[in-house]
Nucleic acid binder design. Structure first.
Lengths: 215, 215
DNA sequence: GTCTATATAGGGATAGAC
DNA sequence: GTCTATCCCTATATAGAC
């Protein structure tokens, strides 16, 4: 790990890397310090403890994901953008996947983050609802309010746990392939609600499927 | 915690209880010993370490869940039994939920269990496939092989993470209500595939919905 | 089988020199 | 800002008496 950039930033970058690879619980502050070849004392000069590192990483994640999630609430997406949007969410989660891999334990140990994460979950759910409402208003799909709510809940769970689940279910697969299939599995669930006569929508999904299988 | 039963069993029972409530990572062997009012030394007489406790608990879980999962592979279920079957799976997972709450970390630390858990996941997926095939053969639903595979994968994820997800999404809710909604959310996803003319199936789902909302 | 006492290791964290 | 040295605490694990 080359010594470039400010030490504080290097600590954060190294922590994120190691947490993602080994799991946050298995990485000590000393491990992080060793990785960037500074002393543990130096690390504690920049952060008063592991908590603060986690919090700083969460701050970064929160800023990014909020920005992403709020976009389609402000302004409905064009049809094709729905796909891309799901991609971006998955990518974002992938970048901070250590957080999702051991959510329960992490939120238990860092109580501060618990509420903040719950809010993100709620925002995620609202965004997915907004996506569906957009499709509905544009006449692509037809579903009742309660169907929409239930769908949004399932979709929220899907984006939250898909990557974690795949690391168990298909340990060898590449990030790209996993995310691809995650988006596809979500899009598939919309098909039952496609409004009759919207063959354009069906062919779009088919075209997307081509992309996926072509790898 | 009253001193009844053999010490070994009391250790396992107390461990399971505490792990489920506080998370495995937050409970030490001393905590367990204190809970049943024995000395740590005594605990180490019965188990050579925390690993062995975890392993023994996993053994118990594995035996139970395998028994459950294999039933419908051997012999297709009656229609109404599909509901009940999902209930039983959720209950089983709930009883050993500490395991699911921090899967990634736990499997990372106890490598032995990693392969065994992966096999359970595969079995789970096969069972859910068998369930769908049963419904299909009986003419209740219609779907292609690839649709069935994709559905089974989603369903496997659903039963694996539903309880964990709900503990974040609806922290206050009762076990009974969460499991209820978990089954319902899964059954709902079958609707698009119901064969035309099978109104009996639709009315069954409607009847089930009544139960759910009646609480 | 069970206890008390104790050893050991690792991670988190601080003090003080440079 | 950074290092070295050190401390404390907790969890795991063992030895030996009863």
């Amino acid at each position: 790990m080359a010594p470039r950039g400010k030490t504080r930033d290097r600590i954060l970058a190294a922590s994120l890397l190691l947490f993602n690879e080994e799991g946050e619980a298995n990485i000590s502050t000393v491990d992080v310090a060793n990785a960037i070849e500074i002393s543990p004392g130096n690390l504690y000069y920049h952060f008063h403890g592991k908590d603060e590192i986690i919090e700083a990483l969460f701050d970064a994640f929160e800023v990014e994901i909020k920005q992403v999630l709020r976009a389609p609430i402000k302004k409905p997406l064009e049809l094709e953008d729905n796909w891309i949007f799901l991609y971006i969410i998955f990518e974002e989660i992938y970048d901070f996947r250590f957080f999702y891999q051991n959510l329960a334990d992490l939120l238990h140990r860092y109580e501060k983050l618990s509420k903040r994460f719950a809010r993100l979950l709620k925002l995620k759910s609202e965004t997915l609802s907004a996506l569906l409402k957009g499709l509905s208003k544009q006449g692509f799909i037809e579903l009742s309010d309660s169907e929409l709510e239930l769908f949004a809940e399932r979709a929220t769970m899907h984006v939250t746990y898909w990557l974690t689940y795949q690391s168990l279910y298909a340990p060898g697969a590449s990030e790209r392939e996993i995310i691809h299939r995650g988006v596809y599995q979500l899009v598939l669930q919309i098909i039952p609600y496609v409004a009759s006569g919207r063959d354009d929508f069906h062919s779009l999904i088919a075209a997307y499927y081509e992309q996926v299988t072509a790898k």
